[in-house]
């Protein structure tokens, strides 16, 4: 029973149960494509949450890393004919190195300035995608094949969903353990108070770079998975819209939570689909975007810890109310504990 309380075990069980749903139920291909997209966005959102939620560093250019991952995956499996899994790892590792460079920039900039600089980075990389035709084939785009793992070709969406779920699970577990140990504490400490973090021995240099590198790695992996799912990409997919959607996922889902990143990804991918089915809303142009914007404002105002923490937030609010009553009953002395 105790094992079930372990978060890693919960994640694993949940992943396996959800991964099997498409095999048991008859779900059409386009819905399954969406489900796969949720997984892919969940991966990039977890990485982005390490950066924004834990390290407190903003980036408005992370679409570039995902795009980079996609193009690398296409080139490595297409032109170089590398095996899928090796190519997928590289489509994470190469953006990670570029993420380190962006991290170096972040060491010099804060807040608004960092947001502007990363926005510029995103725009610049997108431009590279448009111009560097040898790598990206420009606006004509590149194609990729179905992934082949140990001679097995994955062409069905159900199977791709299982593959994606396994990769998501591995990345979730890695992030979960990393964030609950030394690195996670150092990142949160850096976000809460840079001075105190430094005084405790946390190197801002090291941990800002780690945050950027990790988020770029997750983004690259997401890009690689996207490439083999959709099997086509062109430069317009990797612009500011995706970077802003990513921000919305993490804020709506919940900053500094892994579960929140996944919920946020689900929210941003699925909501436009639900809206499409409601006729009078679908007739309003770009209603999904408008809705996302309002959802973000609403969440920031009323649930600043995101959807994932609504339950906890209510519990804490109730607890505080009860405690303040108890304190009044005792007749004050809130510092009573301080006497050693």
């Amino acid at each position: 029973m105790n094992l079930l309380k372990n978060k890693a075990v919960q994640y694993t069980i949940l992943a396996f149960v959800v991964a099997l749903i498409p095999l048991l139920l008859d779900i059409n291909r386009s819905t399954l494509t969406l489900w796969n997209m949720v997984i892919i966005y969940a991966i990039i959102a977890i990485g982005f949450n390490i950066l924004l939620g834990y390290a407190g560093q903003i980036s408005l250019g992370h679409a570039a890393f995902m795009g980079l991952g996609a193009y690398i995956a296409a080139n490595l499996t297409g032109n170089l004919e590398l095996p899928f899994l090796l190519s997928l790892v590289l489509s994470g590792l190469i953006p990670m190195v570029i993420g380190l460079i962006l991290g170096l920039v972040a060491l010099r900039l804060e807040g608004h300035y960092l947001a502007i600089a990363t926005l510029g980075f995103g725009v610049a990389i997108q431009q590279v995608f448009k111009e560097w035709t040898a790598f990206t084939n420009g606006f004509s785009g590149v194609r990729a094949d179905n992934p082949v793992i140990f001679g097995l070709e994955i062409s069905e969406r159900e199977h791709y969903f299982i593959l994606g779920m396994i990769i998501l699970l591995l990345l979730v577990l890695f992030a979960h353990y990393l964030l609950k140990s030394k690195t996670g504490r150092a990142l949160l400490a850096m976000r809460d108070s840079e001075h105190a973090a430094q005084a405790m021995g946390v190197s801002l240099f090291k941990y800002k770079l780690i945050a950027f590198a990790a988020s770029a790695f997750y983004a690259g992996i997401a890009g690689g998975l996207f490439m083999h799912l959709i099997r086509f990409t062109e430069p317009n997919a990797w612009g500011i819209t995706l970077s802003l959607n990513l921000l919305a996922m993490v804020v709506i889902g919940g900053l500094a939570t892994i579960g929140g990143s996944i919920i946020g990804a689900g929210f941003i991918v699925m909501v436009p689909e639900f809206i499409k089915d409601i006729e009078f809303l679908a007739s309003i142009k770009s209603f999904a975007t408008i809705f996302t914007g309002f959802a973000m404002i609403f969440v920031i105002m009323f649930f600043p810890h995101g959807i994932a923490r609504i339950g906890t937030q209510i519990k804490i609010a109730l607890l505080n109310r009860r405690n303040s009553r108890v304190d009044k009953g005792k007749g004050g002395a809130p510092n009573g504990r301080s006497k050693g």
Binding site: R185, L188, D192, S193, A256
Partner: peptide
């Protein structure tokens, strides 16, 4: 200067 989003124990562990 404490780390406000962390628990008491985590603050000390840092």
């Amino acid at each position: 200067e404490l780390f406000k989003s962390m628990t008491v124990l985590e603050n000390i562990i840092i």
